[in-house]
Design a protein around this nucleic acid. Structure first.
Lengths: 129, 129
DNA sequence: CCGGCTTGATTACACCTGTAGTCATCGCGA
DNA sequence: TCGCGATGACTACAGGTGTAATCAAGCCGG
């Protein structure tokens, strides 16, 4: 019944993701510290951040450690895993699973700058070593 | 108040996207024809498809033309626009807007096959003409 | 020692989404 | 002509999401 207590990998929503970014960036923080980082940018209040944090705990994306009367929050899910999952979802949904099609699209729609192109080229060269 | 009647570009959900794909593929269809295409694959019923279609009409992603007592549905939003928008969202959210970072991630996570790499390389060559 | 601030927990609530049932209508076939 | 089937409109409803108020408890400064 209750997936959240079993499944270690639940879908992370947009707002939750903003919180994750802060934790990935800074490692371990209290709720108030997270709020300092995001409440300004997104116009949230501390209660909102707390809700997001507890949902992330339920989803087993982060974990808590008691520190006196408060909690320290730190990420469990690795950023690379999240990024990889989301990228794969997109590629599957929109490009039939062909990552090259995504790159082609980016190139054609001019989402890639000269600089991007150069970087990719360098990357390819490296991959072919 | 009511964005749906003003804003021509509303966010398309996952299920709605499945319907859009059919319309992009086939052009203009009746509700039943759409259902024939997707109800099998996704285990939906005709009413579900009709709901999705009317939501898409509200979101101004598709339009209807009366044909006798029924409607013909056809896309307004271009697939390329949708794909571009979604790709941009992802790149912005996860890669700080740097498309090259997305490509780098795909490469590093081995989401790119030999074939993909070759294709991308060819693309780059072409772009630099 | 006590009241106020900090903090997590609980509750709230509107909107979106996925999925579908029901209803009224209207034209086609018998 | 008349009932049936197809069709769009309306309604439903549970679960997720964004955003927050409120509550209870406990520690800290006065």
């Amino acid at each position: 019944m209750n997936k959240s207590s079993e499944n270690p990998r639940e879908r992370i929503s947009d707002a939750e993701h903003a919180v994750m970014e802060v934790l990935w960036d800074r490692g371990t923080l209290t709720a108030s510290e997270v709020c300092e980082e995001v409440c300004g940018k997104r116009g949230w209040s501390l209660p909102t951040v707390k809700t997001l944090l507890s949902r992330l705990v339920q989803k087993r994306a982060i974990e808590t450690r008691p520190d006196g009367r408060r909690f320290l929050y730190s990420p469990i899910m690795a950023r690379a895993d999240y990024v990889g999952g989301e990228s794969k979802r997109l590629v599957d949904r929109l490009f039939g699973g062909k990552a090259a099609s995504l790159v082609a699209h980016l190139a054609e729609s001019e989402a890639l700058s000269e600089n991007d192109l150069a970087e990719i080229e360098a990357l390819l060269k490296e991959l072919k070593q």
